[in-house]
Design a protein around this nucleic acid. Sequence first.
DNA 1: AATGAATGAGGCTTCATTCAT
DNA 2: AATGAATGAAGCCTCATTCAT
Lengths: 194, 194, 194, 194
Amino acid sequence: MAKKLTARGQHRRDQLVATAARRFAEHGYDPTSVADIVADLGVGKGVFYWYFPSKEELLNEILRASQLELRRAQQTAIGDEVDPLARIEIGLRTSMRWFAQHRQYFAIQQLAAADERFAPTLRRNREVAIGDTMRHIKEVIVERELVDDDPELLAHAIHGVVDHLVRRCIIDGGEDTEQVADAAVAFCRRGLGG
Amino acid sequence: MAKKLTARGQHRRDQLVATAARRFAEHGYDPTSVADIVADLGVGKGVFYWYFPSKEELLNEILRASQLELRRAQQTAIGDEVDPLARIEIGLRTSMRWFAQHRQYFAIQQLAAADERFAPTLRRNREVAIGDTMRHIKEVIVERELVDDDPELLAHAIHGVVDHLVRRCIIDGGEDTEQVADAAVAFCRRGLGG
Amino acid sequence: MAKKLTARGQHRRDQLVATAARRFAEHGYDPTSVADIVADLGVGKGVFYWYFPSKEELLNEILRASQLELRRAQQTAIGDEVDPLARIEIGLRTSMRWFAQHRQYFAIQQLAAADERFAPTLRRNREVAIGDTMRHIKEVIVERELVDDDPELLAHAIHGVVDHLVRRCIIDGGEDTEQVADAAVAFCRRGLGG
Amino acid sequence: MAKKLTARGQHRRDQLVATAARRFAEHGYDPTSVADIVADLGVGKGVFYWYFPSKEELLNEILRASQLELRRAQQTAIGDEVDPLARIEIGLRTSMRWFAQHRQYFAIQQLAAADERFAPTLRRNREVAIGDTMRHIKEVIVERELVDDDPELLAHAIHGVVDHLVRRCIIDGGEDTEQVADAAVAFCRRGLGG
DNA sequence: AATGAATGAGGCTTCATTCAT
DNA sequence: AATGAATGAAGCCTCATTCAT
């Protein structure tokens, strides 16, 4: 599937992804042309199609890759923590920090969410993410015998809190990431029946 | 500014707005061409430009008009209610019901939010909406002597709750509007220090 | 051929001609739309086509009418002057004054001269004008026995002087019409062998 | 600013300029569509925009380039001639021959002169050309102590003679270029006080 | 691995003209 | 006489994609 690339080729490819991600985040998907992207790097148009089959597939790949990165960051941070509530807290804090540091990926997700062409990729991403959170929540429910709660709904609620606070408070509002994360953690712990 | 329109003209114009809104909501702004819109109505392309100066301006107008409609619905529902907390509750319930019934406008707002071309219009809309809510919140703060709280932040929080629950629970999740609204009201009343 | 018009109709028609002439002179023929013209008068588009069969025909008419007017002014000024050289001088002075006072018609002639669609009308106009001048010149030639000179060439030369001095000195340069006319007269009298 | 072009690219570009110049000269600027130009060469529409940013800019470029060419021809012809009057004569003859051989550029200048979109470029061109002539005239004035004459006015007069004789006698009238040039030279030498 | 060149469909918009009322 | 509405061809330009070198 994936082409073998030389070190130089991998570098070029990374440059293209980074440049495209920046422009997509700043101006949107359709308003960003392939010509814009390659012009930013000062290379010819052929380069783009050497590394990616199409502009649409590039955005799909950005969406998949960014989620993969975030997920790895979460797994590394969680390590072998045994308390499920603590794992949720770590995951949540990691998400907020990661989006605060990679704002273009947050913007790209918002933009893709309003575009039917990327719905399948986003749906798959969301299912994975919700599944991760749900596993922790189920353990919490078992531990605390909260048999009436729907773990999927709770997972959605947590993601909603993260999503909204990142956008309005951190990105738009410029507030301190750690403080906002503290508030989010407090809210979600209570929300999970603390 | 606004052209004089006959009854027939007003009807055509309304048809164009409705058709465009539906297609924008379903497929996005850029993927919807003016040709698509007029083809849906079986009229010539010139018709579009008789009523609107540009495709971009049409979406701006949809954004402004939809907010105006929602606001009127809220004002009618609030009537001369004197309790500020009750006014907030009515406004919130009205919003959720209105978006549940006019889902295309919700979709259009999401789509515009990811597009720099519509940022000015959305910002103006948001300032008006936040201002409305803030007026009620300030009265609540005075009544309850909650001098430490920032009314603007609280207003944002309330709008965030409405926004998110409408999207994930009502539109995506298909849950019952009144039940979701009950939850939102409960949360926001507690959030305002109830 | 020509429609019977009420007094009010004639007034409307004159307004349209004047408005169109101004816009043609200022912005050119193609860049001036019928919509521009009627909008200037605040009337509907149908009005234009009530009075003129097409935009192209309107410009043709402006060209013919303006030459007719200028010619009448010359004939009135010449009256029954018997000296052919004096008639030429009067015609020349009248031309320059008339163009100085009706600059839009000068601009329209320049513009039409660069447009093949109006070549036939302009050619007919020019033939009439050259013919007028030639008649006087022939008398001069007979009187002075200048049998070697070509009256048509001399007529062209005179028109060239008028044309050029009007454009560069009067219209572009803003110099005094009478002084420029004096110079033109002196030059042409010498040019005719004075 | 200017793109790097391969030999093939430069050839294509030259073809486009030549084709466009011919059509502009024959039919005018607005009546010539980009589709016409590329169809003449049997290439796709995109080719045009690979080489030029817009149709308007192409005409501007033609105006600038043609004046540059003429000016070079004059400078080459003048060489190191020391007599200013002789330099004026050489410049004038070169102009008339050049326009006789490149009639499309003469037509394009006329057409641009009636179009406000090209006024800035034409003004700049004219300033350069008038400046060239003025330098020679000033020397003539110093040599002959003609302190009362305005060099700029005289330069305009000379250009007017060239302009008019080229149009009416050479292009329209089909007369012999050298004979017309002789007459122009004689006239201008006398005009400069010979 | 990369480039400049080319394609051609399709997008937005304009406009002369026509027509029902 | 006049209007608002409509038409649809045509214009300029963009762009994802392909290709020869």
